[in-house]
Nucleic acid binder design. Structure first.
Lengths: 305, 305
DNA sequence: TAAAAATACTCCATAGGTATTTTAT
DNA sequence: ATAAAATACCTATGGAGTATTTTTA
């Protein structure tokens, strides 16, 4: 691959000085140099381009058409070049850069929008790339280096190798039930009655830790979970409950997601066996060296006090 | 004014090569140089920026976050710098640049739109700035260097100092009359009858040569023109005729501008005194050195064969 | 121990300086 | 006559080369 020729910024800077002063002597003074080498430099630039940039006599200097057309272009080029060092420093300390953020749908409708708006305001030069993805897809993304961080659901005690984790919230799992089911309005709802009902749940691969915790609860009470339907997103699961296909265990915050025909019931910590809890965490690669990621982590930590 | 510091393109080129190869030896080969000065150059760049761009051991080279963020920026800068010489050459021969074109309203509705579309297609990198202006304003514009060329109306023989001129069309002046006027449908319309009617005409300053030619016609037939109303744009003049304020002398092509209540009548060359003619010309500063202007002139000449 | 980056030095190309000439007003 | 650009020639900085050392996988 041949290295394409280009013209160094110094020459464009000298060109601009002459174009602005229209006087080699004054332009040279502005550049902290003397007039003769500036004349040579402009002659050199004209030779490189193969055209005249200035119509000059010993008494006057005027831009040619090509010269005039180049002035804004050269100015733009210089401005961009001058902005690069500051941009580099900003990137190094995380005030600029790119952050690829994955998130599960539940946070996408809850805390995420407000946080993103505030972060964008504080760090306008950080490009945020968003990707809705389930936890398993996010773990793949970390493996392949496709994402910098992710909001995901998991059981307490989740600690995947090579990933760091900041817990955002810890919630009780509650049960979402079809309104038509007589148990939905029973005053003293017993856990074992709920466990007898058909279940709508996410596939195990999506979120094994929580899936296992739920199944363990069934087995501990001597029940076999009857899976009526699997679905990936919490919204879909709740919609299936609404359609009467079964009950579902969902994080308490999903209560905000109201659907006609769906009743959320809390079983409480005192039940036997214990109803699982569920955490939402910000997860990132422990060995990431993206300074913008550190900014985001600090930002989230500050929000959570 | 201090000269702001910037980092030369060569360093960015070297940075890019290393960032792309992630190997100093191969990057140096690609740059047609040896490895040691490339190592020095990168070290120099890092010192200038005050930060590390690569995490390197003797075995591996990886971009830091700041380095990664700079790659697209540096690529963009290099690409722009490399495009400048071609742009300069295009500007010098008129394939790129800026053309400030003024025009009177009549051509604005007639030939101009089609011509502009075709010109833009042939010369996409020429920025066309359009300004509707009467002839007198255009002449001021030439004086002040605000415009490169203009389409304007004038009498035959018009030759303003320092301006060059390409005639686009030469037309008979015809008379626009209110339909209600009995003369409007008279089979043999006599010039002297028309000259007796109240006149709608543009102010003399707008277009002195044609104004004088019209008034000369009145005087030569022993009539005093009775100016009922002055107006600047041809459309306005025709609208005033439509409203019955008087008759108006307009270029024949204005016939295309149909208005209810307006009849156009051609008096013919044989009348005495002679009815003036009117030219539309492309006018430009004779000493202009804008190559895009030469392209436009050639383009127009080619259209007119 | 071998591959690759860093270090040490050498050289020369060129950016810039000084002195002078040319030229147009 | 003078202001200003061009020309001639000199100097020295720093970019690139060669030889060598260091480092770690």
């Amino acid at each position: 691959m041949p290295v394409s020729p280009w013209i160094e910024l110094r020459l464009w800077q000298q060109f601009l000085a002459v174009a602005e002063e229209l006087h080699f002597g004054r332009a040279a003074a502005r550049l902290h140099m003397t007039q003769p080498p500036l004349s040579q430099a402009i002659a050199h630039l004209e030779a490189l381009l193969g055209l005249k940039l200035f119509d000059r006599t010993q008494r006057s200097v005027r831009l040619t058409a090509a010269g005039g057309a180049l002035v804004p272009q050269a100015r733009d080029l210089l401005a961009r070049a001058q902005a690069l060092p500051a941009f580099a420093r900003a990137s190094a300390d995380g005030r600029a850069g790119r952050l690829r953020l994955a998130f599960v749908s539940t946070v996408g409708f809850d805390v995420l929008p407000g946080w993103l708006r505030a972060f964008r305001e504080q760090y306008p030069k950080v490009e945020l790339e968003l990707l809705e993805a389930t936890g398993d897809v996010q773990l793949d993304g970390f493996e392949r280096g496709d994402i910098d961080m992710g909001f995901m659901l998991h059981s307490p005690g989740f600690a995947p190798l090579g990933l760091a984790c900041r817990c955002i919230s810890r919630e009780q799992m509650v049960v979402a039930m079809p309104e038509q089911n007589p148990l939905a309005h029973a005053p003293g709802l017993a856990l074992k009655d709920v466990l007898g009902l058909p279940l709508v749940i996410f596939p195990r691969r999506i979120l094994p830790s929580l899936h296992d915790a739920i199944f363990t609860m069934y087995h501990a009470s001597g029940q076999l979970p009857r899976v009526a339907q699997e679905a990936i997103q919490m919204q879909t699961i709740v919609n299936l409950v609404s359609a009467g296909l079964g009950v579902a265990w969902v994080p308490e915050s999903v209560r905000h997601f109201q659907r006609p025909g769906v009743v959320y019931r809390c079983i409480g910590m005192s039940a036997t066996p214990c109803v699982p809890e569920c955490e939402t965490s910000l997860v990132w690669s422990a060995k990431s060296n993206n300074p913008a990621l550190q900014r985001f982590i600090a930002f989230v930590a500050q929000i959570l006090r």
